[in-house]
Simulated scan of single mutants.
Amino acid sequence: MRPIILTWGDILTLHGDALVCPAHKHLICGRGLSAQIYARGGVELVTQCQLQPECAVGEARLTRAYQLGVNYLLHTVTPQWSSGDQWGAQALQQLRHCYENVLALAEQNGLKYLLFPALGAGTNRFPHAIAAHQALAVLTACSGQFEQITICLHTPAALGEWQEVKQQFFSV
């Protein structure tokens, strides 16, 4: 099992085989990180995304990354956090599917160095501790299949929450 790297900063400055992009179901420019990725990816990215089939919540799609510091983008549609109401369990399962399907697609395409944002914890409002637990449960189980998995958080505070979850539940 290889360690999962937790860091904070601008994920778009990092290098790897693939960057995971929080996506809209039609792979169009969304909000937050998605908007930044599409802005840097350019017209070629938009054109390739238009050729992709619709992507349901939890599914993943692969495209080239064009002007970004990676070769590929792994797009996945994250669920909306519903504040733990009656649909909360479904949202948690869908978030896990995002990670599982991204990892399966990466493995199918021989991608070994993956960059993840905190899926669901941005504009979809999952609390970081909950998002971290779902992510780390899946990523820890599969980390041996990849050379490096990096999770890049947007703030030092978010990094602290992820580190706490990792230490409490996923330390060996």
Rank of each mutant, 00 (worst) to 15 (best):
I4C: 02
D10E: 10
D10Q: 04
T13W: 02
H15N: 05
D17A: 00
D17S: 00
A18R: 06
L19R: 07
L19M: 04
V20A: 00
P22F: 01
A23H: 05
K25Q: 10
K25L: 04
K25A: 02
L27N: 09
L27A: 08
I28T: 15
R31Y: 08
R31E: 15
G32R: 13
L33C: 05
S34M: 10
Q36E: 15
Y38M: 11
Y38F: 15
R40Y: 11
G41W: 09
L45P: 14
T47R: 14
C49T: 04
Q50I: 08
L51Y: 10
L51Q: 15
P53Y: 12
E54W: 08
A56V: 08
V57Y: 11
G58R: 06
E59N: 14
A60Y: 06
R61I: 09
R61N: 15
R61V: 11
T63N: 15
A65R: 13
A65F: 15
Y66N: 11
Y66C: 12
Q67M: 13
L68T: 03
V70H: 15
Y72E: 12
L73S: 11
H75C: 11
T76C: 10
V77S: 13
P79H: 09
Q80Y: 06
Q80N: 13
Q80K: 14
W81N: 11
D85L: 07
D85P: 08
D85F: 10
Q86W: 11
W87E: 15
A89R: 14
L92N: 06
L95M: 00
L95K: 02
R96W: 00
R96A: 14
C98I: 01
C98A: 02
C98D: 02
C98P: 02
Y99C: 01
V102Y: 05
V102H: 02
A106H: 09
A106E: 09
A106T: 01
Q108K: 12
Q108I: 02
Q108H: 08
L111N: 13
L111I: 03
K112D: 11
Y113W: 13
L114N: 11
L115Q: 06
L115D: 05
F116C: 12
F116N: 12
A118D: 03
G122T: 07
G122M: 09
T123V: 13
A129N: 12
I130V: 14
A131E: 03
A132P: 00
A132M: 02
H133A: 11
H133G: 04
Q134R: 04
V138L: 04
L139S: 01
L139P: 15
L139D: 08
A141K: 11
S143W: 05
G144H: 09
Q145Y: 06
Q145H: 08
E147F: 00
Q148M: 07
I149S: 01
T150H: 06
I151P: 01
I151V: 02
L153F: 00
T155F: 04
P156T: 05
P156W: 01
P156F: 01
A157L: 08
A157E: 12
A158V: 03
A158M: 04
A158S: 10
L159E: 07
E161L: 08
E161S: 07
E164W: 05
E164T: 02
V165G: 10
V165D: 11
K166V: 00
K166C: 05
Q167I: 05
Q168N: 10
Q168L: 03
Q168V: 03
F170T: 00
